[in-house]
Nucleic acid binder design. Structure first.
Length: 98
DNA sequence: CAACTGACGGCCT
DNA sequence: GAGGCCGCCAGTT
């Protein structure tokens, strides 16, 4: 799998996160089956426009620093419960079989 | 080729 | 729960 295919695979994975749920960078990497969380983050930074990037957060439930406020706002309008600037992953975490 | 970098994560205080 | 530390891994210097 070359880099372009990898980028496409990551973007498709993000697109498949349904409204109302979230995935971690690590979740996406695992789902794609290649690379790691940092690769996913790098791809979101570069190619994230065009996909629901706000549904990808850190494993701690906190969004990436740069986009944090907008991300939380978008998630809330998705219907995701936010408590103290954090997403409750136990509720909202993406399950690929959906 | 070595060093640095970072939309990260898990483990240990 | 919050930091600090270190591992990870691909891209850039």
């Amino acid at each position: 799998m070359d880099r372009e295919e990898y980028v496409e695979a990551v973007l498709r994975a993000v697109e498949s996160i349904p409204e109302g749920s979230v995935a971690t960078y690590g979740d996406i990497a695992e789902y794609v089956g290649q690379g790691g969380p940092r690769q996913v983050g790098a791809i979101m930074r570069e190619y994230g426009g065009g996909v629901p990037w706000w549904r990808v957060i850190r494993a701690s439930g906190v969004p990436a620093d740069e986009v944090g406020d907008e991300q939380l706002h978008r998630l809330r309008s998705d219907g995701v419960r936010i408590t103290n600037g954090r997403v409750n992953l136990r509720d909202a975490r993406w399950d690929p079989q959906d």
